[in-house]
Amino acid sequence: MPTSLPHDLPALRVGDSGARPALVLHGGGGPRTVTPIVHHLGTAFSVTAPTHPGWDGTDRPASIASVADLARAYLDALVDRQERDVVVVGSSIGGWIALEMAVQSAADDRYAGRVGALVVIDGVGVVVDGQPIADFFSLDARGLAEAAWHDPERGYQDPAALTEQQRAVQQSNGRTMAAVAGTMSDPALLGRLRSVRVPTLVVWGDSDGVVTPAYGRALAAAVPGAAFAEVTAAGHLPHLEAPEATWAAIDPFLAAQRA
């Protein structure tokens, strides 16, 4: 049975509607964290960047209770829009959703051909021995900045400077992330990645303390034919901290997909 997204789900759309479609999936920080990716890709792709159900005050249907459910809902949306060969780009939890979409599309004829390529940016979701995922939920604002950014001062958000509305949204997003992503991993996912059959690029900030570059390399090694690119002087969100170096890693891969 299809898993429906809310009809009024906000989405940023950029680019020529006649170009190849790209779907950009944000992580726990919300849609603002992937805005630079959307605008960068919009010069060559027809980009859609939805707000995940339950983030930023949106409704989350009871049918979406896991990352697998969310991936299925996005695949169903691609079917409804009759979009094929979509380039799916995911950051952090968005990378996990992207991987799950690729795995599901390989296993279910309803979704065959919907996902055409993947770009996973510091994605979570797999379990790698000796490379634990930082516990998002136990970190305060300072600890999160130190784990997620090469330059923690740049990433630090003083909780005292937030408005009541911003604080409420942040707390709500955290509750949604805990409900959907749980421990930030699926112990079975690493083995399931062998079924992925689309071109895949895994991009990682070399200073990521949330999920280390070693974790990223193990993830990439589990996807047949995947390439791995490391971005220097960047943490968990390299497209925010080192955008030009990130585009230098991503653009040749995307150019090959347009050839």
Rank of each mutant, 00 (worst) to 15 (best):
A147V: 08
P187Q: 06
R175I: 09
A179G: 12
G130Q: 07
A141S: 15
P187M: 10
V119G: 02
V169F: 03
Q170F: 11
D122N: 08
W149G: 07
G143T: 03
G209H: 06
Q131T: 13
A161S: 15
R194M: 05
Q166K: 08
R197P: 02
V119D: 06
T183L: 15
P213W: 02
V196T: 04
G155K: 06
Q171I: 00
G174F: 13
G123I: 03
T183W: 13
P132V: 10
R197H: 14
G209I: 07
V196G: 02
G182N: 15
D206C: 08
R142V: 05
G182S: 15
S207N: 04
S195G: 08
P132E: 10
D140F: 02
A148K: 08
L139H: 07
V127Y: 01
V211H: 01
D140V: 01
V210K: 02
R167Y: 10
L201V: 04
Q157K: 14
R142W: 14
A147C: 12
A222C: 00
Q170Y: 09
T176H: 09
A220W: 02
Q165V: 13
E146I: 05
R194L: 03
F136S: 08
G191C: 06
Q131P: 05
A218I: 05
P199W: 14
G123H: 01
M184A: 11
S172E: 12
A181Y: 01
A145H: 10
A145I: 12
Y215A: 01
D135E: 07
T183E: 15
P159N: 13
D135V: 13
T200D: 04
V119S: 00
H150N: 09
V203D: 01
A188L: 10
A145F: 12
V211E: 01
D129H: 12
Q165N: 09
V180L: 15
A179T: 11
L219W: 04
W149K: 06
V180I: 14
A218T: 13
A220Y: 00
L162K: 12
V223N: 03
V202D: 03
A220L: 02
Y215V: 02
R167Q: 12
S138E: 13
L139I: 12
G182L: 13
V126W: 04
T163G: 10
A141K: 06
S185G: 13
A160K: 12
V119A: 02
R175W: 13
V223C: 00
V169D: 04
A221I: 04
A168I: 11
G155R: 07
M177C: 13
G125V: 09
L219Q: 08
V124W: 00
S172Q: 15
A141R: 14
T183G: 14
R142P: 05
G125K: 04
V223E: 00
S172T: 10
T183A: 15
S195I: 09
M184P: 01
D158S: 11
V126L: 05
A168C: 08
Q170S: 14
A134C: 12
G143N: 04
R142N: 00
A168N: 12
I133Y: 07
T200M: 03
G155P: 08
L190C: 10
A147R: 04
E164V: 00
A178G: 08
A221H: 03
D206S: 10
P213G: 01
